[in-house]
Amino acid sequence: MSRQSNRTTESKKMNSELFTLTYGALVTQLCKDYENDEEVNKQLDKMGYNIGVRLIEDFLARSSVGRCHDFRETADVIAKVAFKMYLGITPSVTNWSPAGDEFSLILESNPLVDFVELPDNHSTLVYSNLLCGVLRGALEMVQMAVDVRFAQDTLRGDNVTEIRMKFIKRIEENLPAGDE
């Protein structure tokens, strides 16, 4: 069998494995470096934030998505364009609050946890917390302050992974936020 044959078509997939495994190595390192899960969660969120504030530029440049008119449109863009583009999945947008300022992203599958099992002694670890930071950071750069957190996680035995996003306010002044 020649080795070259089926490799080119698969290459994109491989790249996501690289990402998944690298992320795993990072979380492992954090768990070694910090005493408790809370600290790890916080650090992951912070790193995600740093990624988000940069990723948004890449996103806007490549997706050619224009300004969103309301939060519903933002939700759709995040789910159908952003997640698709970077993680290759399309979460569904549901559970809108009556005021329309809060919704859930339901992830059928989460590429970050492809090879992951949580050991018992890390029950409060939010493994994919990086994603929250990414969303928060990216939206902050387009003048939206949001609160993002994991409501459900398959790693912890839930049926689906649910990210809850809440709109807090529109950021008026356009000053660059503290880049950590």
Partner: peptide, 15 residues
């Protein structure tokens, strides 16, 4: 590649 940008950012954060 899409995934790649993400990986590069992650790699930078790692460092």
């Amino acid at each position: 590649m899409a995934d790649e940008a993400l990986f590069q950012f992650l790699h930078n954060e790692l460092i």
